[in-house]
Design a binder for these strands. Sequence first.
DNA 1: CCGATTCGTTTCAACCTTGAAGTTTTCATG
DNA 2: CATGAAAACTTCAAGGTTGAAACGAATCGG
Lengths: 173, 173
Amino acid sequence: MDDDAQPRWLSEEEQLAWVGVTAMMWLLPGSLDAQLHRDSGLNLFDYFVLSSLSQAEGRQRRMSDLAAQSNASPSRLSNAVGRLEAQGWLTRHPHEQDRRSTVATLTDAGYDKVVASAPGHAAEVRRLLIDGRSEAELAALRDVGASVARAVLGERCAETVMPPAARGDAPDC
Amino acid sequence: MDDDAQPRWLSEEEQLAWVGVTAMMWLLPGSLDAQLHRDSGLNLFDYFVLSSLSQAEGRQRRMSDLAAQSNASPSRLSNAVGRLEAQGWLTRHPHEQDRRSTVATLTDAGYDKVVASAPGHAAEVRRLLIDGRSEAELAALRDVGASVARAVLGERCAETVMPPAARGDAPDC
DNA sequence: CCGATTCGTTTCAACCTTGAAGTTTTCATG
DNA sequence: CATGAAAACTTCAAGGTTGAAACGAATCGG
């Protein structure tokens, strides 16, 4: 509640941009969730975890790295990984050097699951968001996303969520 | 699973744009929720309902209109309105002409709540998303949002979620 | 008019997320 | 070393969301 004295309302253009972002924010997760659930029995977050592991070296990653990358709370990640482990798509074991950490490793079945799920997911992303966009629009989405990541993550640096190529002029942190 | 034979993967630029959108999608709701919860004891969806009512004629609106505007499931809206009614911020009564419908009406206390919450919310939207954006970026967000709304809502028309000014070249529906 | 169907909403059970508290391991310091 | 603090997860309870089923009100066809 400790705002500045006079709130700076949004201009016409700013409001329209905000409405556009709300449309993406409200609509995309639901649709992508629905597609994955329908075609693969996964939700978007679980898919993200599997996909992230499939691209990691050795197909394994520490819980804390996964959490940072997805900006998820520890318990959310713990639950998701628990679900995926129960399905046999990954295993958990303590980290060799630092036994506080848990390392999640994708199983062969988990890798197959990602491979089977990815095309449908990519097609949906394309259909709902990418197809029909101009070069300039794609660049704007990249830059705005990087800016949002910086603003939200602040000192924790956008590195965790954005790949280097999209970070733009982020202060080195 | 009934994809086309060969999946069309995303190009480099498309992937970066997608990563940018995921950053908005994952990060913004959480931060906006947190600000509202901290400063006003509201979540983003409840705030949206109150705000929508405060701008409606007579400060009242039918449940089905609210649901369409926010793309929420009926039960989600019912729960939200139930919470807000329990707080005394709105009342429910059957629609005069069509008694199947329920009309939600903002109370004076509810209106005061919106007025008290709006500046902090607007400031956060500004801080995380709007400030520092160019005219071109704002326009891109508006257009992409409109396009997503069309793609997701399909035949149901984007009208429900996007205001006319942002709908762009939507087919009349 | 009367039965069948559709419409708008609510309710319910299953599931997911959140934030707080608890556990185990590691690190820093006296 | 020993002890306190920090880090990395897990667990738990409270609350929110989803999709299906249920319910009353309105509409449509005969």
